[in-house]
Design a protein around this nucleic acid. Structure first.
Lengths: 134, 134
DNA sequence: CTGACACTTAACATTATGGTTAAGTATAGT
DNA sequence: ACTATACTTAACCATAATGTTAAGTGTCAG
């Protein structure tokens, strides 16, 4: 099951983690867990503009998290099925240290997605939330 | 599915993934996989200034990936203890989670665990941690 | 052909990130 | 006390990321 492929480069990991470091994108990933969706369908869940969604999708695609296809005038996005295999064996060396945290992430992302992608008010307009202190 | 705990907020995930989206920080995490180290020891592996390392550590700390302690004039960083220290049950756990993920959303979530101690492109020369994963 | 629809691309503003050097704080050693 | 060591904080700069609106591009519908 674990296909043989080169482990990800540093740059690929930058892209991967960078892509996941955004609530909207995690929400999109969650939405796609249920199957492929069009850009408009995805966008409907968020209070941001379509161009913004479009770019998030591009980021996810670049990070190899999703793939996209064109169907008439509609574009559908879907989760890329084999990305895990790429990292799997390499991942194992730290898994022990991280499994607990991962479990939590696993659930959370599923939840964040399933429940309401809307739930990411944290990054919206309302006001400036205190972010990085450094 | 696992133990009880509150799941991370969206903001926590932003911090977590954001922290891992940088090769230097992944490198630091990799170094720390071998045990706690001082700032200077960590810094020795990278071609950037100490203040830069210092800030990376702050980011990792804020992301709850590491904890730090002061010992004399030395500060040590260590990976945040995983409550899943039992190695003997780990494998079973790993397998189980693995299947769960494959059946749900998660190619990418598994990848979150892929902490990289590896290639730092042109700016880093790792040496005390295994580079290649398998 | 014309217009609505489903996007994407372009141009731009704002904020975040990551690096630098210089200065500050705390501890150790003599 | 004086100086070196081990950092951290501050000030600054360049680049990347995220959002916006306006202007494309391609497809379906009449």
């Amino acid at each position: 099951m674990l296909s043989v492929r080169e482990h990800p480069t540093s740059e690929e990991l930058d892209l991967l983690f960078g892509a996941l470091a955004d609530a909207t994108r995690r929400g999109i990933v969650g939405q796609l867990a249920g199957g492929e969706l069009t850009v408009t369908e995805l966008a409907a869940q968020y209070p941001i503009s379509l161009p913004a969604i479009s770019r998030h999708l591009k980021v996810l695609e670049r990070a190899l998290i999703i793939t996209r296809s064109k169907d008439g005038r509609v574009r559908r996005a879907r989760l890329r099925p084999s990305s895990l295999a790429n990292t799997s064996t390499w991942l194992a060396q730290y898994e022990r240290l991280w499994s607990d945290r991962l479990n939590r992430l696993d659930d959370l992302i599923a939840k964040e997605a399933a429940i309401s992608p809307q739930a990411h008010k944290t990054r919206m307009k309302p006001k400036n939330i205190s972010e990085e202190g450094a």
